[in-house]
C-alpha cells in the first residue's frame, strides 16, 4: 500500500506498450482476419455461382438431348420415307425394264419369225421348183419361168 514514483513509470510503460500493440500487433492480425473473412465469403459466393451454372448447364444438356432425339427421330422418319421412295422407284424401274426386255424379246421373236418365214418361203419355192423340174423335166425352163416362180413365191 505504498505509493511512489513507480506509479508514473508504470503509466509511461503502459502507454508505450499500448501504442506498440496498436502499431505493430493489432493491425496485421485484424487485416489477416478481415482478408480471410472476405476470401471465405468470396468462396461461398463462387460456390453459389458454380451451383447455379451447374443447374443451368444441366438444363442446357437436357434440352440438347431432347433436341437431338427429336432430330434423330426426324432423320429416321425421313430415311424411312426415302427408302420407301427408293424401293418404289426401283420397282417401277424394274417393271419398265422388264417391259422393255419383253418388248425387245417380242420384237426379236417377230423378226426371227419373219426371217424364218422368208427362209422357209425361199426353201419351199426351191422345193416347188425342184419338184416341178422333176415333173416337167426339160419343159420348164428355169430362166424362162423365173417371173412366174417369183410370183408364186410372193403368194406363199
Amino acid at each position: 500500500m505504498y505509493l511512489n514514483a513507480t506509479l508514473l513509470a508504470q503509466i509511461t510503460v503502459f502507454i508505450i506498450l499500448a501504442l506498440f500493440t496498436a502499431k505493430f500487433v493489432w493491425p496485421p492480425i485484424v487485416r489477416a482476419l478481415d482478408e480471410r473473412a472476405a476470401k471465405i465469403s468470396e468462396g461461398l459466393a463462387d460456390a453459389e455461382r458454380g451451383r447455379q451454372s451447374l443447374a443451368l448447364s444441366a438444363q442446357h444438356a437436357a434440352e440438347a438431348v431432347r433436341e437431338g432425339k427429336e432430330k434423330a427421330a426426324g432423320v429416321i422418319a425421313q430415311a424411312e420415307r426415302r427408302a420407301e421412295q427408293i424401293i418404289e422407284k426401283a420397282k417401277a424401274d424394274a417393271r419398265l425394264e422388264a417391259e422393255r426386255v419383253i418388248a425387245a424379246a417380242h420384237a426379236e421373236i417377230e423378226q426371227e419369225e419373219a426371217r424364218m418365214r422368208d427362209a422357209l418361203r425361199d426353201r419351199v419355192a426351191d422345193l416347188a421348183v425342184a419338184g416341178a423340174e422333176k415333173i416337167l423335166r426339160r419343159e420348164v425352163d428355169a430362166g424362162a419361168h423365173a417371173d412366174m416362180l417369183a410370183a408364186i413365191k410372193q403368194e406363199l
Binding site: 500500500m1 505504498y2 505509493l3 511512489n4 514514483a5 513507480t6 508514473l8 513509470a9
Partner: peptide, 8 residues
C-alpha cells in the same frame, strides 16, 4: 505511505 523519491 507516499514517497515519490522512491522507485520500485
Amino acid at each position: 505511505m507516499i514517497d515519490f523519491s522512491i522507485i520500485n
